[in-house]
Amino acid sequence: VTTHQPIRQAVRRRSIALAASVVLADQATKLAADLLSGGQRHGPLVPVRNPRFSLGLAATTRPLMVLAMAAGIALVAAHGVRATGRNAVPGWIPALVIGGSLSNLLDRLLLGAVRDFLAIGHLVINLADLAVLAGVAGCYLTRLARPPATTPIPGREVHQ
């Protein structure tokens, strides 16, 4: 177990660095979109501030909402640490989910709304949403959609 310790620490460090990079990149792109778009309402860059949250609780219970989101992120972080420690998933998966959700939480905490700017069809999202989505998709694809690892060795098949 002790021989795996340095490897686990390196994976954890890299995951923390990736999560921090997601937060920085998301905040930078939100700022850039605000500055570059000039308040336009058409095209791929449409900066909007979106206060909405689950169950329509946004306006009345913002502190509660922020607390709930922080608790959710902490839960994902705890599961992420356990999952990477058991080699169940690569470290970049929880890093993307945690980084993306933290950045949106930061928006809610500081501005009272999430800044969205990327118009895709009728949706307006941001880089943090894409990071969370990529983490969820990565978790499913690398772990759950993977074919079974046990393949029969040629010439050693069991015939009954």
Binding site: S54, H79, A83, A88, V89, D129, V136, Y140, R143, L144
Partner: peptide, 30 residues
Amino acid sequence: MTKLRQLATAVMLLAGSLAVLVAETGPRAF
């Protein structure tokens, strides 16, 4: 047993991540 624990941990992580995605992004997108 180890494989089962790994799978269970991954499923828990996926469920938590999905919950975060739905709670955080869903209401803003739809």
